[in-house]
């Protein structure tokens, strides 16, 4: 039960993009089309879940027993960078179509602050192994949901008559603000 609560909380109530502001760069950069936004969301969810597993193992199995907590940032970022590289290679070997669909977005994920943020939250909140996996999955689901909704709105927005000064990033940010307001409606859920 606890695990499901963590999943829902990470996905909807404390959405990574709309309430922690993690992963804003891809949220604004790759939300032009629904299809590419969805692929980006799926790729990010995958990396988030794997990162949750690996960073939990590294922190609680290696860094903590050897009293090396001060190395956590360096360790996490290196692990994430190599993990993204590894995921890219594995996908390339296993499934060419998937690789072609995600290809461009995969390297971008390294600089997504949601990934490092997830690792930091796991340490900060002292999650257990299983909890971490569900936290990663939930965060990924939330990210996919937010970026896909955003892409849907932006596709409609292209037909609207937006004032010159608001074109591009400003109107996207304001739409994101309204979306964040809408997601606040979920805050009484738990």
């Amino acid at each position: 039960m606890e695990v499901i609560l963590i999943f829902i909380s990470a996905a909807i109530i404390n959405n990574f993009v709309l309430s922690y502001f993690l992963g804003i760069c891809p949220f604004i950069g790759v939300s032009n089309k629904i299809s590419s936004a969805f692929s980006m969301g799926i790729a990010t969810t995958f990396v988030l879940t794997v990162t949750a597993i690996v960073s939990w193992l590294i922190y609680f199995m290696i860094l903590l027993p050897f009293k090396l907590e001060f190395l956590q940032y360096v360790a996490f970022i290196l692990v994430i960078a190599s993990l993204v590289q590894l995921v890219e290679m594995v996908i390339k070997k296993v499934s060419q179509p998937l690789y072609r669909a995600l290809g461009i977005f995969l390297p971008l994920i390294t600089t997504n602050c949601a990934i490092l943020g997830l690792a930091l939250f796991i340490v900060l909140r002292n999650y257990s192994f299983i909890e971490s996996i569900f936290f990663g999955l939930g965060a990924g689901t939330g990210f996919t949901m937010a970026i896909t909704i955003m892409a849907g709105i932006r596709e409609e927005l292209e037909l609207a008559n937006v004032p010159d000064a608001f074109k591009g990033a400003p109107i996207t940010l304001i739409v994101a603000g309204i979306l964040a307001l809408a997601f606040m409606g979920f805050s009484g859920l738990l």
Partner: peptide, 24 residues
């Protein structure tokens, strides 16, 4: 609302728009 996340997005968006307006 200005202290909540939504306020951050809207403030930033409005500031960006006003700076765009000045440069236009």
């Amino acid at each position: 609302v200005m202290i909540l996340p939504a306020g951050a997005f809207i403030t930033y968006g409005l500031l960006l728009a006003s700076i765009n307006q000045i440069s236009i």
